[in-house]
Amino acid sequence: MSGNGELATILRVWRERLLPRQAGLPTNGLRRTRGLRREELAMLAGVSADYIVRLEQGRASTPSAQVCAALARALQLDDAEQTHLFLLAGHAVGSGRIGQWVPASVRRLLNRLDDHPIAVHDAMWTLILWNRPWAALMGDPSALDEEERHMLWRAYTGQPHRIIMTLDEWTAFERSMVADLRRTAARYPDDPRLHAFVQQLRELSDSFRTLWDAHLVSDHHQATKSVDHPEVGRIDLDCDILTTQHGDLRIVIYTAQPGSESETKLALLDTIGTQTMTPG
């Protein structure tokens, strides 16, 4: 069986074994299949239903690493199954390249801590996964391509965002992010995606080129973050960044001080819902 054929078959198997109630979906009405419908999987993974159809028919190009991560989360794959999915899609796992493979335990973290905004980035700070509170806080990035989901790319290309920063805070953020990216480049010296990304930013921004050529090296840390939400206004949050042992993933968790106005506003976002992030 070809790679595309095996991928098509196994996606159908995984979809049909997952019950709607296991995915948090209603089970009203008659269903021709025991598991999820294609439209339901598409909604959970943040892709189009037509793309799921083409994948299962072997007519689509193999999914990107980000789509694989989203499918693994939607299908609730364990670590071995997720590794198999990435390999079938042509993405090397544990090859010395920056990966977007997200352990099942991290996906469970996003699902269970669903009262806190949480996002997962790869080692070069490309957004991979996020939970519903994060999308409500920052905007749903599902429509953005991989490049537009990178924190530094969005910053240097003037993409719209909701973060409030003074000039001094922006300068510190910029230095910290570039120094963290330089550290990642040392850990993954042969990663072509990272090399191409750095070259693009060097050509795009004098500021980035100056900082990159300064060879600053450090981890990125940010203790607090202020968000200007279009519906509820300013929300001040504590920001904690955790790094996984496997793959150097960056898990960013936002929390509000108990009893604060920001905690109330954060809870209100659950009612308001999400707004889509669009390319600048």
Rank of each mutant, 00 (worst) to 15 (best):
L201N: 08
A196M: 03
Q222K: 13
G233A: 02
S226E: 09
Q200S: 14
L201E: 10
A223P: 07
T224N: 04
G233T: 08
F173Y: 15
I235G: 06
A172Q: 12
H195P: 02
A185L: 06
I251P: 08
R182T: 00
P192C: 09
H215C: 07
D248T: 13
D219Q: 10
W170G: 02
P192T: 05
V217H: 11
G247L: 07
E203N: 15
L237Q: 05
Q222Y: 03
A223K: 03
A179Q: 03
S226K: 13
V227S: 00
R202N: 10
S207F: 01
R234H: 05
I241P: 01
A179H: 09
L242Y: 06
E231Q: 15
G247H: 11
Q222C: 06
H220Y: 15
T224K: 07
R250D: 04
D236Q: 00
T243E: 13
Q199T: 15
Q245C: 06
M177S: 07
D240P: 00
H215D: 15
C239D: 00
Q245W: 05
L249A: 02
L211E: 14
A185K: 02
D228W: 07
W170F: 14
K225R: 12
R182D: 05
G247R: 04
R202S: 14
V198Y: 07
F208D: 10
P192I: 10
H220I: 01
D228K: 04
F197G: 02
I251R: 04
V198L: 11
V232D: 04
R234P: 05
Q245P: 00
L201Q: 14
D248I: 11
E169G: 06
H246L: 14
D213I: 09
E169K: 04
Q199H: 13
E169H: 00
L242Q: 05
D240F: 00
R234W: 03
R187N: 08
R250K: 15
D248R: 12
Q245F: 09
T244C: 04
H246P: 00
L201A: 11
T210P: 01
D228Y: 05
H229A: 09
R234L: 09
Q222H: 03
C239I: 00
E203H: 14
R182A: 09
L194Q: 11
R250F: 09
S226Y: 02
T244H: 02
T224V: 12
W212D: 07
D228I: 00
F173E: 08
L201H: 11
D238G: 03
T184Q: 06
L211T: 14
P230K: 11
S205T: 12
L216S: 12
A196E: 14
L204V: 05
D236Y: 06
E203T: 13
D240S: 02
S226V: 12
E169L: 01
E231Y: 08
R234C: 06
Y188C: 04
W170A: 13
R250G: 08
R193M: 07
S207T: 15
L204K: 15
Q222W: 01
R234A: 07
E174A: 13
A223W: 03
D190W: 00
